[in-house]
Amino acid sequence: MSYYFAIIGTQDNPLFEYEFGTAKQGGDGVARFPEQARHMNQFIVHSSLDIVEEVQWGSGQMYLKCIDRFYNNYVSCFMTGGNVKFLLLHAPSQPAASTTARASTSIAANPTSPQTEEAIKQFFTETYENWVKTIMSPFYQVNQEVRSPVFRSRVAAAGKKYL
């Protein structure tokens, strides 16, 4: 499974982006988006913002689960208290020839299973903690891009841990 994670601010502006792949079950943690898909990721994520706007007023939960789908791309959403959106696009990779029957229940192959949903929730929750740490600094201004390499490595670690 390949993942594209974006944090979108209240002006629909991207504050942070990160691509990665499944690290579990022998995955190498590298995203495998076909070249043209890479451009599409931003577009897909951006267009799912309309749906986020509708969904966010129906549920007080921060984790909004999978809110949109575009062909083989699924978009899950987590909404912070400050209306900043964490969006995770997950796209199962093409199954390799050596895929065994066991792999078919893995997170990497099942974008909408309950296990996947839970794993994504944990990824979002851990990222949220790091997000709150970021915004608590008096020098962080609303809708500012996040450039900290430490934040990036925290997001990467969460991705590796849960996905």
Partner: peptide, 12 residues
């Protein structure tokens, strides 16, 4: 400890 500096990261 410095409570005034909790949560603070200087601008990069």
């Amino acid at each position: 400890e410095n409570p005034l500096a909790d949560f603070v990261e200087l601008p990069d």
